[in-house]
Nucleic acid binder design. Structure first.
Lengths: 346, 346
DNA sequence: TCAAGGCTTGGAACTGGTTCCACACCCTAA
DNA sequence: TTAGGGTGTGGAACCAGTTCCAAGCCTTGA
């Protein structure tokens, strides 16, 4: 590869401004005081020569790269949900002069930690200061990251199968209170026969179920969980559960779907059965994905502030970098129930 | 910020293996020959000390950072379409040991080039080798990038208002042949009254319209363009155009939508009018977005290979970096018509 | 036996910044 | 007049690699 042409260096600027190299460095870092005239002379020389300091050289001495990596694991594609988290990370990072590297990783939950093949970014030394983990996170990946001593923050509603003791920083949103509020809202609208549709073997869907259950318990109502077998996708799951809901003996008046995709599948399948939303049955989702607005009427759902999650991840990572010995913490961001058109007053 | 603890250096490894520092470097770069025994001894020392070379130091001398930036411009959020391009870039980049920085930029087409405020990644020297531009690209941004002498490749179906002379590398997909094939397919299925729905003030939608027009001309059929005023979004546009299509005197049997979002809006609105797809009217889209599969029946559409676009961008950028004086080129990737359920044989 | 040439190897010099020590200068107080 | 402190400045040393030249060793051929 042809090398990039040599650029102006600090020494050439020093010569041009008739000062020492140290002075140039001081001007660049606007640190310790430099006399007004000297500073002006240096700045003029910098401008004239079109000098821009070499970022790499600075990093060696500073032992800080001002770069972090956003690592997306076990996702076939960059889902809009995670894409927005990435954007939140990027936008906050830029505002504090940090750069964001994007990397993806596929691994099995059963691979022993030391055998997980990390992307090149994490294999080099001194390329990044820290890491933001998103996607599906299994304990073996956490172990692996710990083994290379890379500071990290996990976006963790998707951390699967971790015990109590928290050995890392995490950011998440409030699954439990999200469905709790949604359920209270439905009850407030006069609904009593409310079911919850999701496969709760996913831990985050289980948390949502717990929120729903709590909401029902508060009013002494009976919680009902609807599940479907063999569904290919969440949309599929929703479609299958529609039949189960319609065939129940006592008529269901509202459904809390585990997420917006399930809600979408449910809606489409109900429509095909001639059951109207919200006239015949009310429906709420979770996540506030783009699809929620594509539905007709638009879906009432629990909004998750994705950009804010990204921003919070980045903030926590910077705190960790500033204070390596700080105790680990977990930040749970609140959700918001957005009222649109799929819930009817009974 | 606390500095990262000092790591093992090449000199310590040299001491441990009782060789010179040059030898360590040679082993690391597996370049010029080192005797089998020496190499083994060095590798053993590296393993024992857990040495990983500092990426930054290497980059100063190499004058290459092995990093590129994926710059998304003027998008409120990282749309699944661009997210997949990013993934294509990342996955190819990783396979050739390059890293990808993600950055976003918002600017107005009317800002003079020199006033465009580039993200920090582009302001530093020696941080990245090159740039992949995606999003909406206006000439002023191209001028601005040229002014900092940063090699770049543009993903260019979205380049707005550029003249003939091509002063940069670009990758795009074949809008024209995409709709041409879709139109031929419809005609092959016996359709004659086919309309095209889109706002062709967008250059890429105009290209698609041209492809449709060519397909109609081949069979001496009359092309008809359907547009809607004041639509907020493409989905909206589709919804509004449904009415216009249904109120035409001669009955339309098929619609080529400018993109999948228009097709989605169209489908939903037709459904509400009691018009069934494909029984009453056939429909094809363009882009093959996720929504296409959410429709019922799933949408027949023109697939754009998004990951491949990303991969091609990365490949072209690397070629440009290897051969800075190479003449600029444009690569147009073919599209593919995917047959699903929204077209009926007449 | 000795020169020539190839293969290894050591390490000085270098990259382009930052850091820090020494020193010059000026002002003030003893 | 001199000691003492603060400010401003130059540049050597440094960071952690790469590059390259010189030199040592071995083999081969005359």
């Amino acid at each position: 590869m042809e090398a990039v042409p040599r650029k102006t260096t600090i020494r050439e600027v020093a010569r041009a401004a008739s000062v020492g190299i140290g002075t140039i460095s001081r001007v660049l870092n606007s640190s310790s005081q430099v006399s007004r005239e000297t500073r002006a002379r240096v700045l003029e020389a910098i401008r004239r020569l079109g000098f821009r300091p070499n970022a790499q050289a600075r990093r060696i001495l500073k032992r800080r790269t001002e770069m972090v990596c956003f690592l997306l694991s076990n996702r076939d594609f960059l889902h809009p949900f995670h894409a927005r988290i990435l954007q939140g990370v990027e936008s906050y990072a830029t505002s504090v002069k940090q750069h964001v590297l994007f990397a993806a990783l596929h691994y099995s939950p059963r691979t022993p930690p030391e055998r997980i093949d990390l992307p090149p970014v994490l294999q080099e030394h001194g390329l990044i200061d820290g890491l933001i983990l998103a996607g599906t996170i299994y304990p073996n990946l956490l172990r692996r990251i710990e083994s290379i001593h890379m500071p990290f923050v996990a976006f963790s509603n998707n951390v699967v199968g971790m015990g109590e003791e928290q050995q890392y920083d995490q950011v998440g949103f409030d699954d439990f209170n999200g469905t709790l509020h949604a359920t209270r809202y439905l009850i407030g609208k006069g609904h009593r026969k409310i079911v919850f549709a999701a496969d709760i073997s996913y831990p985050w869907l289980e948390h949502r179920f717990e929120g729903y259950r709590e909401g029902m318990r508060e009013k002494k109502l009976k919680p009902v969980l609807i599940t479907a077998r063999n569904s290919q996708s969440f949309v599929d799951f929703g479609q299958e559960s529609a039949g189960r809901i319609l065939s129940r003996r006592s008529r269901t008046t509202a459904v809390v779907a585990g997420n917006d995709e399930i809600a979408y599948g449910l809606w489409r399948s109900l429509q095909r059965h001639g059951t109207k939303v919200p006239e015949d049955i009310s429906l709420v989702g979770f996540d506030d994905r783009e699809e929620a607005l594509l539905m007709d009427p638009p879906l009432s759902t629990v909004r998750v502030h994705k950009e804010e999650i990204g921003e919070t991840c980045m903030k926590m990572l910077l705190e960790r970098l500033h204070h390596p010995r700080m105790t680990f913490s977990q930040r749970i961001l609140p959700t918001e129930f957005v009222i649109r058109g799929t819930v009817r007053q009974l």
